[in-house]
Design a protein around this nucleic acid. Structure first.
Lengths: 188, 188
DNA sequence: TGTACATCAGTGAACGCGCGTTCACTGATGTAC
DNA sequence: TGTACATCAGTGAACGCGCGTTCACTGATGTAC
C-alpha cells in the first residue's frame, strides 16, 4: 500500500510525535514499537522503513521533546514567569508534554550514545537560556553558577512532586515551598 | 535442598540487598528476577518462596535503599558536609549505593502503590532531617520551605550531572556550580 | 542419644506473553513512453 | 493526455529471546518417639 511522499512524511512526523509523548509518559523501556506505531495510526511493520532501530527513534524523540519545549521557552515573558509555570501542579501532571530533562534524566545513562548526545545538548542550551535571563546576562560568571542551581532546583522539585503525587497535599507543598524559597534567595 | 532457618534468612537479606543495588543501577524494569537471584547466589525458582511478586521486592528494595542511606545521614558531621558529599563526583558515579530519591524519582509514578508509599515516606523523613539541621531547627516555618528547595537542588544537580556524564567536564561543572550557588544563597 | 519421617527451601524445566526485528507480499504512486 | 510498469510505503505473519511466574521434584532439616 504505497502512499504519497507527503503522506509518508506526515507518518514520519506522527511517529516522532508519538515517541516524544509516550516515552516521556512511560519511559524508553515502558513503551514498545507496536504501541508507538498504533498511536501514529500505522502497523508495526512500517516502523523500520522510517527508523533503523528503536534507539534511533529514542534519539529523535528526545530531540523533538526539547524542540517542543523551546517554543514554550520563547513564549515566556521572563524567567520568573517561566519558573512559575515549570514548578506548577499543571506541569507536574502533564508528563507527556512536560520538560524532557525531568522525565529522561535518570534513564539517559543507560541509553545509546546518540540519545545521550541529544540530551546533553538540550540541557546545555537550557542552562544558557536561564543564565541569559538573569540580571547581568549570560556573560556574568556568577550567573552561570546561579543558572545551574536554579535548573537543578526546578528539575528536582518537579521530580520530587511527581514521585510523591499519591499524597497530593505533600506533593503540592513541595512545589510551593521550593518556588517560594527560590524567589526569596535568588530573587527570581 | 532444604536449608537452615538462619541460611534462609541470610538468603532473604541477600535478595533485598541485590534488589536495592541493581534496581538503583538499572531501574525496576532494567533488572529481571533471574539476575537478582543470581546476584544473591540462588536460582530464580526460589524467589517466590521469599516474595509474592517482583513488585513486593521493589517495595522492599526501596525501603532498604532508604535505610542504607539513613546510616550515611547520621554519620555526617553537619548539613554542609552532607551536601558536599551528595553533590560530589563520587556520589554521581556510585549509583548502586547512591540516594534512592535521585535514581527512583521518575519511575515511582508507574510502580505499585506499596512502592510509592515506601518512597514518599523516605522523601518526607529526608526533608525533615534537612530542616532540623538548618539554623533555627525544624520548627522554624521558613526552614521547611528552605529544606524543600535545598533537597530539590541536591536531587536535581545529581540527576543533571549523571545524565550528562558522557561529557565529564560539563557534568562536573554542573555539580560545582550548583554547590557554590547553594552555599552562596542558602549559607550551607 | 538414636532412628523414622514430615516439612519445606531451593532446583530447574516449562508456561504464556510481549518485546524488537525481519520479510514475503500488496497495491497505490509516479515515471517512461 | 493516456497507458504500462517499476518503485516502494505499508501490512501482518513469523523469528528468537527474555520476561514474570508456576510447579513437580529433591534432599537436608528438624521434630516426634
Amino acid at each position: 500500500v504505497k502512499v504519497t511522499k507527503e503522506k509518508s512524511a506526515e507518518h514520519h512526523e506522527a511517529i516522532i510525535a508519538a515517541g516524544a509523548k509516550l516515552y516521556r509518559e512511560r519511559g524508553f523501556d515502558g513503551v514498545g514499537v507496536v504501541e508507538i506505531m498504533k498511536a501514529a495510526g500505522l502497523t508495526h511493520g512500517a516502523f523500520y522503513g522510517h527508523f533503523a532501530s528503536k534507539d534511533a527513534l529514542c534519539a529523535a524523540s528526545v530531540k523533538r521533546a526539547f524542540d517542543d519545549r523551546r517554543v514554550a521557552l520563547n513564549s515566556a515573558h521572563d524567567l520568573s514567569a517561566y519558573i512559575d509555570a515549570y514548578m506548577s501542579v499543571t506541569h507536574r501532571d502533564k508528563v507527556g508534554t512536560g520538560c524532557p530533562v525531568a522525565t529522561f534524566a535518570s534513564q539517559i545513562g543507560r541509553q545509546a550514545r546518540p540519545v545521550q548526545k541529544q540530551f546533553t545538548q538540550g540541557v546545555s542550551s537550557f542552562l544558557e537560556w536561564i543564565a541569559s535571563h538573569l540580571a547581568g546576562g549570560a556573560t556574568k560568571p556568577q550567573n552561570t553558577r546561579t543558572a545551574a542551581a536554579i535548573l537543578s532546583a526546578m528539575v528536582g522539585s518537579v521530580l520530587l512532586a511527581r514521585s510523591t503525587s499519591s499524597d497530593k497535599p505533600f506533593s503540592d507543598q513541595i512545589l510551593t515551598d521550593s518556588r517560594a524559597a527560590i524567589a526569596a534567595k535568588f530573587g527570581v
